[in-house]
């Protein structure tokens, strides 16, 4: 995980998981001519998304949503089935500004879903949760030193702030698909190269614009 600031943590990111009960294998349904008609993207397929807005512990609010997009095509059996540029939505799970006593800012973001022709491909395990560098040591030192001289001086440590976290627009992060997702086997076309007219066919044969 890219460390944007001397971070203590990566929250949801490091959540390796053991049981993958809902992970479906990649599969395809064959047509009469032997070509695949449908393709299933298994749950927990690794993907890369890109944030399309600045987020930060000092500017974001818990519960806010933000735009994102698929940064690299999702591939099944070596074939791109969802193109880069597919739009999606993320959510600010937790945002807290840096505070007194040396507390660093906190920011936990989640990737909610990618949208294809009105259908939502649910996402999970976004690798973006940061805690800004804290100044606990400075605050504690000042507090303890102050306490040895004057109670009033001891309070200085309470006003020492930690650092804010900022995740700029364009940041890329790993995530995973949260559930198996079936779509038609039409070849994916990059939404970036196709401009505003992507051609991702869904399982009902519709075309996502």
């Amino acid at each position: 995980m890219a460390v944007l600031l001397p971070a203590l943590v990566s929250a949801r990111a490091q959540q390796a998981s053991a049981g993958i009960a809902d992970a479906a294998p990649a599969s395809s349904v064959q047509t009469a001519d032997g070509s695949a008609a449908e393709i299933t993207i298994p749950a927990l397929t690794p993907i890369v998304v890109e944030l399309l807005a600045d987020e930060g512990s000092g500017i974001s609010k818990s519960g806010d949503t933000f735009p994102l997009r698929l940064a690299e095509p999702i591939q099944v059996a070596g074939r791109a089935v969802i193109p880069a540029g597919t739009p999606g939505i993320g959510e600010v799970i937790h945002a807290k500004k840096s505070g007194g006593g040396g507390s660093g800012g906190e920011l936990i973001l989640a990737a909610d879903y990618l949208e294809l022709d009105g259908r939502h491909l649910p996402l999970r395990s976004l690798d973006l949760a940061e805690v800004g560098k804290n100044n606990y040591r400075t605050a504690d030192s000042l507090g303890l030193a102050g306490a040895a001289t004057s109670p009033a001086v001891a309070l200085i440590g309470m006003f020492i702030k930690g650092k804010q976290i900022t995740v700029p627009k364009g940041t890329r992060a790993a995530a995973k698909t949260a559930a198996a997702f079936t779509l038609s086997a039409a070849p994916a076309q990059s939404q970036e190269s196709a401009g505003d007219a992507p051609a991702v066919q869904n399982s009902t044969g519709g075309v996502t614009q």
Partner: peptide, 16 residues
């Protein structure tokens, strides 16, 4: 602190 704990994952919270 608000968290999103997803299935099969272990999250860690530190108290200071």
């Amino acid at each position: 602190l608000t968290l999103l704990v997803e299935p099969d994952e272990t999250q860690f919270v530190r108290c200071k």
